[in-house]
Structure formats: C-alpha cells, structure tokens
Amino acid sequence: MDVLALETASMLSSGGGAEGQERELVERARSGDQEAFGELVRRHRAKALGLAGSLTKDVYLAEDIVQEALIRAFLHLGTLTDSNRFIPWLHRIVRNQAYMKLRRGGPHGKERPFVCFMSQSGLPADSGRNEQAVDWSDIDCILFHLTDHAADEARNGQNPEQYLLRQEVLQSIHMLIRCLNKRERDIFEARFFGELPPAEIADLFDTTTANVYNTLSRSRVKLQKERIRISISLYVQRRASLGLPRRRILTPPLI
C-alpha cells in the first residue's frame, strides 16, 4: 500500500495554482450549485480515475468506483467542513470505494450495488437488479436502484459526466434525504452511506440502539412519502410533456 500513499501524495500536491478558484467551486457546490459540482467533477475525474485504476487494475471497475464516489461526494458535500480539503476528501472516498470493491472479489464483484452490501440490511446482493422488481417501499432498494441507474447511464452514455449528473436521479436521492431533519439525516446517512451497524450509530450519536431503530423507521416513512411526492411531480411533468389536459373541474356533485 506504499504505492498508494505515494500516488495520493502526488495528487494532493498537484493543482495548487488554482486554489482560490477551486475553493470557490467547492463552496458553491456545497450550497447546492450543480454546475459548480459538475465543474469539480470535470476537473478531478481523470485523477480520481487514475487513482481507482491503480488500486484495482481494472478500468471498468475504476469507472464504477469513481461514479459511486462522486455520488457520495455530492451527497456528503455539506458535511465537508473545510473546502480546501475537497480533493483529499474525494480521494479518500475513492479509496474507500475501491477497497470495498476489492474486498467483494475484485473485478468480479463490480456489479454489486454499494448501498445494498454496505447497508448490512440482509438484502441479497442481486435484489432489485431487475427494474420491475424494485421494491419501492424498501429504502435500501430505492437507493440502490437510483445509484445503479446513474452508474448504468454513466457507463453506457456518450458523455459520462453529463449522465452521471443527470439531475432527476441525483436530485431524487438528494431530495429524498432532504426531507429528514438534521439528526434523522445524520443517523440515516451513517446507516446507509457510512455502513455502520445501529449499535455503533447509537454510540456515535450518544443515544440508545432502540432510538436509532426508531429514527431509522421514522426516516423510512418520511422517505417513502417524499418518494411518492417526487414521483407525483414527475408524473405531472410527464403528462404536461405529452400534452395531456392540465385541468378538468366538473360541476360539484349534489351529495
């Protein structure tokens, strides 16, 4: 792993010239500016890919890892306290992703959805692979489906960056999680993105395991409602794009 440390160090030292601009981009991205995040992705994707590639020795797996890492980075940008630390932070995410992939059996494990195997939810690794089989009442599968969808788009599309940032997918995850309050969100993210078992989360947040379960359960209900709300908005947009009637109000009935 010494090689890795060296590579990381070399990457960290590069890009010092445009530091101020870089920090500004991170700040903008943190406040939800998708364009700024897109610019960050364009700047750092190649290096992140290089890092992931050196770790896995597999170009396709590296691609997957970077996509997943970027999704995570996007989701967690708000938790980054020092905008100067963006690059090392992103690379740490890439490394974590890569180690997890490798633990799962290297290139052959690349089809594994990160949310499912990280959540320790007991879901079989292949659950939800099929679009029709997505269980929308199970948040693990929803998150898996969304990220998987994003990864597919990125893999198959002409312009991976653009597809990676496809607003409807990323925004869905983002909006889903936004409906939670700060504490629920922290606990939820610790569970689903931070791969922690509830007992450890309880320690981390200085609460009981029962409380963590309650929070998770409440969060799931909120996410379920939010998911429905989002899908209704998309449904209404779709009707509009198909030119279907927007409004029809009959005479109120006499009942």
Binding site: I232, R246, R248, P252, I255
Partner: peptide, 25 residues
Amino acid sequence: IYGYDDDKQQFYAKDHAKDGTLTYA
C-alpha cells in the same frame, strides 16, 4: 372526486363532511 388540476397537483372532491381540495400527495 370531481376535478383535477395538474399545475396545483390537487383534486377537487366532495363527501358529506366537506367540499374542497386535496393534493395528489
């Protein structure tokens, strides 16, 4: 349910308790 409005995402509905609107959500 006697009406819908996609822009407001709401239905117009009536039962014996009330004549009013409810959102799709």
